[in-house]
Design a protein around this nucleic acid. Structure first.
Length: 709
DNA sequence: TTAGGGTTAG
């Protein structure tokens, strides 16, 4: 026997020692050269190919084997199919193996169970479990781990709700309720775990992550402690199962403890732990720490990029989120469906329509437009960027609606003042069997509020508790209080807020204070302010509002007193800012802004417009000027409000007929609202202004809000 | 055989 034959023999006795494709091929060639290989020898080569995950080569051998194939050949080909994601083939070969009279052994079941799990084939998975028990494999470590993994995944599947009880009590008609289903799979998982004669770290991690992902947080954490008693120390898998729990509970202290443990045990460079830490810090509003973890990672995969992007966006750091998204593209990491649904809200909040449209194009090219998360985010983005028709168009094209997609569209209508569209959609959602949640009620109440529909609002407010058992929160109270205030039922609004079952916050009282300003009720305004300053002494908006109410009434002394108090407390008013997108560039303006390179041209255009407007009957409402200054100065101050600068800049920078879209960070002022109506008529343009609470569509001298905002 | 990220509001 020569040395080559010796080497072949050693390798064949130790198939797992073959580590490369070329080595396997050489071995295969040697065997074919020297003799007519036996089926068992060929099966060994097949198992080597299968170990190396070479499906094509494995299949060539499998098909050339004399029938029936050996057990080794069957299990090699089944494993190879599973690891290639060809689950149906894997299961079909498993059935053929049983049919050929071969008994599967402990090496086959993990692959078969994985296929059942990933195909979400519950029935098949359970019958495989039966087979495992009958063949006495119910105590095998790997098989049990795979079984537990299967039950933990089935446990979190929504589709399982419709699983029929065919096995129990001979019933075939009943359907498992969610609770029954959960306890069934939880029971199966625990039973397997408890029956195991020996458990390794994978067993513990599987049962921990199963509990963690299905909301059994306390149980998961308890098992981490029990695992310690069994002399097993948490590894990177354990940590990344546990970190999301502390993220959800916003438990920074525990999250940091885990971070410390990860550092001490050398897991902090693990990209899985890294993205869990980024997410945990972000959910605890510590985005700086998220960034630090991100930069400390030796490498970034798609998920760690997505985590940092989502972390920024969810904390209102939209520009930073966009920057990370850009860097991700530069790093040649292809964004996936999660990246798009995470970044889209940044465009929605910043009203950067051009960016949103670019992303939409990218989404269509990547074929992600059918994803319900992305479609909902697109609906929201188009609605928030003023394009309600496109939002509806996308909504209508969706094949599947969930709670969020309905709510995004309803809220879109609410923001645009289309209350009846919002209400009819809300009704359709109920008819289609989607139960409205907390946010959906916020949306429909906001719609009622912006359109002054008091009766409808009461109906929905009562339906929340009576029909859906949702306890109204601050936002629902605020919407109703806001509505009552808008329609001038100020005393009723005051009573309503005073009777709330939770402590009203400053923001709830603020809505009423704003209404007092519109309806010029100083007496109530003072009463409301007193309440407001007690619960929220640092509320800058309230000081400004009250001071404005005094100014509008000519009580300059009181107004000044308040402003001095603000100054003494170191409080600074948020400056009003408006912005407009021209040729894919955002131009921002603050009141009296002279910094823009086109300032002179804007000012000139403003003067011309003002003359035309006054000829049409426009009278400057100087009561809105909140400073005690000369009349001429007041005129100047009014005309240089940020929204007017942005609108005028839009008019002189775009071709005739183009719609002007402006966003403002605060509520649009009464005089600017009147002025914009005149401007829309004079220049023959549609002007869309988004302020901090809604959209105003100005056209032909009218506004979509019907002067009610 | 085990793990991490997403849409509506505030």
């Amino acid at each position: 026997m020569n040395t080559t034959q010796n080497l072949c023999k050693t390798l064949l006795q130790n198939p797992s020692s073959v580590k490369s494709k070329s080595q396997a091929k050489q071995l295969h060639a040697q065997i074919l050269r020297t003799s007519l290989p036996s089926p068992s020898l060929l099966s060994t080569i097949l198992s080597i190919y299968s170990n190396l995950n070479l499906l094509h080569d494995s299949l060539l051998i499998f098909n050339s084997l004399p029938s029936p194939p050996t057990t080794l050949a069957w299990k090699s080909i089944i494993r190879c199919y599973t690891s290639h994601g060809l689950f149906l083939h894997s299961l079909s070969f498993f059935i053929q193996m049983l049919a050929s009279g071969k008994y599967p052994d402990h090496n086959v079941f993990p692959s078969v169970l994985k296929s059942c799990t990933l195909m979400k084939d519950l029935r098949f998975g359970e019958s495989v479990h039966g087979c495992i028990i009958r063949l006495g494999m119910g105590f095998d470590l790997y098989t049990c781990n795979a079984l537990m993994n299967m039950y933990s995944k089935f446990w979190s599947l929504e589709e399982v709700n419709t699983y029929k009880k065919v096995f129990d009590e001979g019933k075939t008609s009943d359907v498992y309720s969610k609770k029954e289903k959960e306890s069934y799979y939880l029971g199966s998982l625990r039973k397997v775990f408890e029956m195991m004669p020996k458990r390794d770290i994978v067993s513990w991690n599987t049962v921990i992550s199963g509990n963690a992902q299905n909301g059994m947080h306390e149980d998961a954490l308890m098992m981490v402690r029990e695992m310690g008693n069994a002399d097993l120390r948490p590894d990177s898998f354990t940590l990344s199962s546990v970190l999301p729990i502390f993220a959800e509970y916003v438990n920074l202290l525990k999250g940091k403890e885990i971070h410390g443990y990860a550092i001490r045990n050398g897991y902090d460079a693990d990209v899985f732990i890294g993205s869990s830490l980024i997410d945990m810090y972000a959910k605890c509003t510590r985005v700086d720490d998220s960034c630090r973890v991100f930069y400390m990672l030796p490498q970034h995969d798609g998920i760690s990029w997505n985590s940092i992007i989502a972390g920024c966006v969810q904390n209102g750091m939209f520009d930073e989120g966009l920057k990370f998204f850009q860097q991700m593209l530069i790093a040649k990491i292809k964004p996936n469906h999660v990246s798009f649904s995470s970044i889209m809200p940044a465009c929605a909040h910043l009203t950067t329509l051009h960016l949103g449209k670019q992303l939409h194009g990218y989404i269509i090219r990547s074929r992600f437009d059918g994803n319900v998360f992305i479609a909902s985010a697109l609906v929201d983005m188009y609605a928030k960027c003023g394009n309600i028709r496109t939002a509806r168009w996308i909504f209508d094209k969706m094949e599947l609606y969930d709670m969020v997609s309905w709510t995004a569209m309803i809220m879109g209508y609410a923001l645009h003042g289309h209350a009846y569209d919002a209400i009819s959609l809300f009704k359709r959602m109920e008819v289609e069997g989607v139960k409205p949640n907390y946010v959906a009620f916020m949306a429909v109440l906001t719609a009622c509020s912006h359109a002054g529909l008091v009766d409808e609002a009461w109906k929905y407010f009562n339906s929340m508790t009576q029909d859906y058992r949702i306890i109204p929160g601050l936002e629902h109270y605020a919407a109703v209080a806001d509505l009552l205030g808008r329609v001038g039922r100020l005393e009723e609004a005051y009573e309503f807020i005073s009777d709330m079952h939770i402590e009203p916050t400053g923001s709830v009282w603020s809505t009423l204070l704003a209404a007092c300003r519109v309806h010029k009720n100083i007496e109530l305004a003072e009463k409301v302010s007193k309440k407001l300053f007690t619960v929220d002494p640092q509320n800058i908006g309230a000081y400004v509002l009250l001071s404005n109410i005094y100014s509008a009434a000519g009580r300059w002394k009181d107004a000044r007193k308040l402003r001095i108090a603000m100054r003494d407390k170191g409080m600074k008013k948020k400056p009003a800012c408006s912005w407009i997108e021209i040729k894919n560039k955002v131009h921002a303006f603050v009141a009296g802004d002279k910094s823009h390179p086109y300032y002179d041209r804007i000012n000139e255009a403003l003067k011309v417009l003002l003359e035309q407007m006054e000829r049409e009957g426009y009278v400057l409402d100087t009561t809105e000027v909140l400073h005690d200054v000369e009349e001429e100065q007041k005129r100047y101050l009014l005309c240089s409000h940020s929204e007017r600068l942005a609108i005028t800049f839009g008019i002189i920078s775009t071709p005739a007929g183009t719609t002007i879209r402006v966003t403002k960070n605060l509520r649009v002022c009464v005089d600017c609202h009147t002025a914009t109506k005149f401007i829309s008529k004079i220049v023959g343009r549609e002007i869309v202004v988004r302020d901090n609470s809604r959209f105003h569509h100005f056209k032909d001298g009218k506004c979509s809000c019907g002067d009610f905002w």
